[in-house]
Amino acid sequence: MKKAENIIVGISIGDLNGIGSEIVLKTFEDARMLEMCTPVIFANVKTLSFLKKSFESTTMLHGIDKLDQILTGKINVLNVWREGFTLEYGVNDETVGKFAIKSFVAATNALKEGLVDVLVTAPINKYNVQSEDFKFPGHTDYLNQELEGNALMLMVQDNLRIGLLTDHIPVNEVASHLTEALIRQKIETVRQSLIQDFSINKPRIAVLGLNPHAGDGGVIGKEDDEIIKPVIKKMFEKGTMVFGPYPADGFFGSGQYEKFDAVIAAYHDQGLIPFKTLSFGNGVNYTAGLNKIRTSPDHGTAYDIAGKGIADYNSFKEAVYLALDIYKSRNEYAEISKKPLKTKEKHL
């Protein structure tokens, strides 16, 4: 297994008119971070050197043109572009969006090729990144296309883990997306992630109902009884510790979530509203279910405070920590999986 400082963390810089550059550079102002990993920021060293002046970052940057020039103990910046362009904090700019995607695509390619070990993405603006070459609602959908596996958004903060059956789709389309195959796949993805990524041998998973009161016996919608419940029952009978569907309204306020290793919500806001309420800005968005590791902070570009030097970088730092923890867990899981099980000798 690699030494900690040799774990290479690829970082896509996100929207440069937002707080991405600030939270990335502030994270690595602490020299102890470089004992845990070697960061490689996919951007341009001149651009970041210019931007860091606005929030008085003391971070020293090491510009490189190729990934074989990475140095441990340094904050490496791979020059993904050379051209200059106008930056204005807080402005929604299509040109800036294009450079955010240049950074992200280059970092993803490096991840695919094994040139970086994990990927941590700074926030993008989902509107200004759209183009003929990039027609995705966000990072997760692109990664699902480029990497092996089935991507699932899993929000993580300590022992609180919330996954989603559906993510970036309109609320009026959620019910039509819920099929037995989808629910089964998402539950299995969460279960496998808890085992290999979080070292939980026999994970307990709760599934929230789609409708108020989980349908109230069919009075408030039939999806819970006719689609969700039968899948849970079948999977439980085959050994998966999955329970529900639970009425979502009181599930978190009552502390019921603490009895489970993960919770699966039916749609985006059903899961993310309680998560962001409970995580206090320290949460992480982890893309579970893929053959590579990607994390990100649980917030957006924050145009309103960009360039003011007041952005809270804890969520980004936690995203780095989680990526490193999962990398180590996966390596340990792989090692254990290779070892033959010991059996007791029979005495005749």
Score class of each variant (00 low, 15 high):
Asn211Gly: 03
Val219Leu: 14
Tyr127His: 14
Ala31Ser: 12
Gly300Ala: 03
His347Gln: 09
Ala43Met: 07
Lys308His: 11
His168Leu: 05
Ala319Asn: 06
Gly149Leu: 00
Lys292Arg: 09
Met36Asn: 14
Asn285Gly: 01
Ile305Asp: 08
Tyr267Pro: 02
Ser337Pro: 04
Asp197Ser: 13
Ile13Ser: 13
Tyr127Lys: 13
Pro212Tyr: 08
Gly73Val: 11
Val174Gln: 09
Thr277Asn: 15
Ala288Gln: 13
Gly244Gln: 08
Val77His: 02
Ile23Ser: 12
Phe99Met: 11
Ser279Gly: 14
Leu290His: 07
Thr343Ala: 05
Glu237Ser: 15
Met33Phe: 00
Val45Gly: 05
Ser199Phe: 00
Pro245Gly: 07
Leu51Ile: 02
Tyr286Glu: 04
Gly97Met: 09
Asp30Met: 10
Ser131Asp: 12
Asp224Ala: 09
Asn150Glu: 13
Leu87Thr: 12
His168Met: 02
Ala31Pro: 09
Leu111Cys: 06
Ile13Val: 14
Asn128Arg: 09
Pro39Trp: 02
Thr121Ala: 11
Val263Trp: 02
Glu258Asn: 11
Lys317Gly: 05
Thr47His: 07
Lys234Tyr: 06
Asp197Thr: 14
Leu48Cys: 12
Ser131Glu: 12
Phe243Met: 04
Ser279Pro: 05
Asn172Arg: 11
Phe99Cys: 13
Ile19Pro: 06
Glu132Ser: 14
Ala214Glu: 05
Lys222Cys: 14
Tyr321Thr: 12
Thr121Val: 04
Arg161Pro: 04
Ile264Val: 13
Pro247Leu: 05
Phe134Cys: 09
Ile13Phe: 01
Pro212Thr: 10
Lys233Cys: 07
Ala248Ile: 06
Gln145Lys: 12
Ala334Phe: 00
Gly281Trp: 03
Leu160Asn: 11
Leu34His: 14
Met241Tyr: 01
Phe28Tyr: 13
Thr287Ser: 15
Asp158Phe: 00
Val120Trp: 05
Met36Arg: 15
Phe136Tyr: 15
Val171Met: 10
Ile41Pro: 06
Gly209Glu: 05
Phe55Cys: 11
Arg294Asp: 01
Val129Ile: 15
Ser193Phe: 04
Lys202Cys: 03
Ile205Tyr: 03
Tyr267Val: 06
Leu78Asn: 06
Thr86Asn: 13
Ile19Gly: 09
Pro203Lys: 13
Val105Gly: 02
Ile305His: 06
